[in-house]
Design a protein around this nucleic acid. Sequence first.
DNA 1: GCCAACGTTGGC
DNA 2: GCCAACGTTGGC
Length: 155
Amino acid sequence: MRHWLVKSEPTVFSIDDLAQCPHQTRWWKHVRNYQARNFMRDDMQPGDRVFFYHSNTEVPAIVGLAEVVSTPYPDPDACNPESKYFDPKSDPRNPRWFLVDIRLVSKLERPISLRTIKEHTSMLGDLPLIRRGNRLSVMPVAPDQWDYIMSLKAA
DNA sequence: GCCAACGTTGGC
DNA sequence: GCCAACGTTGGC
């Protein structure tokens, strides 16, 4: 089982939006970046644990826990000309973009803010989240980093 | 709203 | 293959 952090802009799709989806489950999301795609397509598996992070908002923070509940599958909107995520260069027989479904596990009572995470660079300094200029929307979290961040929940 | 950082595109 | 221009991300 692997651990991940995924970003979502709450004005686009928030943790509360996920909570209101049937079975608190929905696909995540229209990634159009190869590094992020590779993580999803090649490494994500059902059962993987996920930090759900709100980006581009007043208090950027990990706001909940989720779980991968599908294997990666082709993003249907990549071959839908009506979609704003249509990619004419993606061959339906050899899809370029992938999704997984995630299910909400729990919403954190108190979000773990980006500011807090940045106060723990000795343990978390190599998280892409706090590396300068990094814009990855999905990133792996090492097991000890996962545990460490979980311990901040209680702090 | 600003803007730094980064990825992608496309002319050459 | 280079690199300028452009679009996007996302913290602040």
